[in-house]
Each structure stands twice: as C-alpha cells, then as structure tokens.
Amino acid sequence: MSSFKAAYHTLLAHWHMLTGYKLFWPVFMIAGLAFCVAVDTYGFMDLYLQLILIYVGINIILTVSLNLINGYMGEFSVGHAGFMAVGAYVASLLTVHSFPAGAQNMLFPLAILAGGLGAAFVGFLVAIPSFKTRGDYLAIVTLAFCMIVKSVLENIDAVGGPRGLLGMEKLTSLPWVFFWTALSVWVIRNLVYSNFRRGVLSIREDEIASDLMSVNTRQVKIIAFVVSSFFAGIAGGLFAHALQFINPRMFDILKSTDILIMVYLGGIASISGSIIGAVIYTILLEILRPLGVWRMVFMPLTLVLLMIYRPRGIMGMKEARLFTPLRDITTEKLWRQKKKEAPDASA
C-alpha cells in the first residue's frame, strides 16, 4: 500500500512539473490538433472510437457551459437540452437548406456559430425570469422552457415535425470538435477567472449582499445565461452533424438530466471537474454497453454512492492547478514580499 502511495506521489510531482511549464498549453493544443487532423486524414483509428471521442468533446462543451449556471452561480437550470436543440436545428437548417452543396465544409463553422448565436439569443430570454426566481422556481421555468422548445419543434412541419430533420452531411470531424471544445473551455475558464467569477460566486453565496457590494447582479446573470447557452448551441450543432439526424425527442428533459449528471459527477464550480465528469460518464457508458439494460442500473447507483461520499462531485469547488492562472498567486506573493521589504527601506 505504501509503495502505491509513493508511486502516486512521484507521478503527481512529475505531473506538476510537466504542467508547470509555460509552454504546456500551446504544445498540448498543437499536438492535440495535429493528432486529430492526422486521425481524420489517414483514418488509423476505428470509426467507432472516433465517434466516442467526438461525443466526449461535445459532452465536455455541454458540461463546462452548464457548470457556469448550476455550479458557479448556484442556480438550478434544467433547460440545457433546449438550448442544445436550438443550436442543432439552426445549424442543420443552414447546412441542409441554405448552404450550397459544394461549400459545405467551408461554411460549416459559420453554421455552428449561427447555432450558437441562436441559442444565445434564447438564453437571453430565459435570463429574464431568473431575475425574479431562484432555486426550485428557476428549475421549473427552465423545465417549461425545455418542453416549449420540444413541442414547438414538433409542430413545425418545415423542420420535419416529430419525424425530425435529416440530410446533414457528416461534417463534424475530430479536428472541429477539438477546436470548439478547446475554445469553449478557454473562454469559460477566462470568464471564470475574472471579475465575473466573483460576481457569479457571490450570487450563489448571497444575492442581496452581492448586490449591496456593488455587483450588477442582473448583468452577471445575463452574461452567465448567454455564454452558457451559446456553447450549448455550439454543442448542439456539432451533435447534429455527427449523428446526421435529429428529432425533437432527443432534446427532452432526459438529455438535460444527462448533462446534469456529468456536472455533479465531475464537481460543481470546477472546470477540470466538468472535463473529468464528461469524460468518465461518456466512456463509462460505452464500456458498460455489453451489460445491456443493467447499464442503466449501474450509472444511477454510482451517482447515489457519489452523492453519499462526495456530494460536491469529484472536483467540487476545487480546481486543478492547470486551469488556474498563476497571476492571482503571483500578485499576492509580490505584495507580501513588498510588505516585508518595506520596513527595511524605511529604516
């Protein structure tokens, strides 16, 4: 047992050394992208494995963005599948009906972006009731929103009604998923390590006190909802073009529940937690596929155990050093140093 512990600590030390390098992120990004492009062009990876990796990426985007509202801000939104649906439908309609057949690959990022913007606009509308309602009540509002999106889509024949929409080319490739995942993690991480973070966290702790400490709570809530739903829309667009078929039932409350599980499994208010949660959940579901129906017993059981032994998730309220900017710590160190030197200077 002790040798195991020692091995773990050496491994951890190496890991810290590796991630401590300034060039870690740039190198990781270029290497990751190069790998994805290589897989995409030379196809040395099983297509099934590729699809799983694509789902991992999409789920990371969904989890990180939902964590902004449910984790950092402490609200309980169950409408994430609704935003995803808006993104999926907007992007798919563009690629199926509007874009010329020859230029699909070129225009694909625009379609995804449009899906994100559409979802962001809807997110802005949902932000308004969040000014007045909190907790359970906001959960009901977002639940209603999710149902509205589903039934509206089911009743518009132009988008296929309940039969759904098909005809998308398989445009979601591994490099694109890598790009969008990296972008969403980077943007949300930046947002979370700024003034905005203190805004959302203070809203979770005590909304009235935070308003009285000069935090513009309305603005913070709008930003949180818009950014979160923007990335849900992006994920939706990617999802639609990976599966090449969407219908309204895919984006019902169960899909939201899936995302919620990933958030609470990985840990609230943590970016590294969201990534861990999304990766574990997606891969575990695939590994357990041979179990058949029992898979649906195993997963909830893990959740129950998790809630008992680690109610805030694996990385709840913690962050891997990899994602925290060193600036905060550095500023404090410099300040302490200055304070220590100050008496010498005056003497």
Partner: peptide, 25 residues
Amino acid sequence: IRLFKELSVLDNVRIAHYGQIAYTP
C-alpha cells in the same frame, strides 16, 4: 453577518471592488 461564507477572505473584499473595475466583459 452576511459574508460570502464559502469564498476566501480575499475574494470577499475583492467582490466589493466589483463596481470599480474598468474592464469590459
């Protein structure tokens, strides 16, 4: 007392500087 209990002492004070920050979202 209505502090932001789960946040650090430093963050509690930094939140109060929210209105004075000059950068945009």
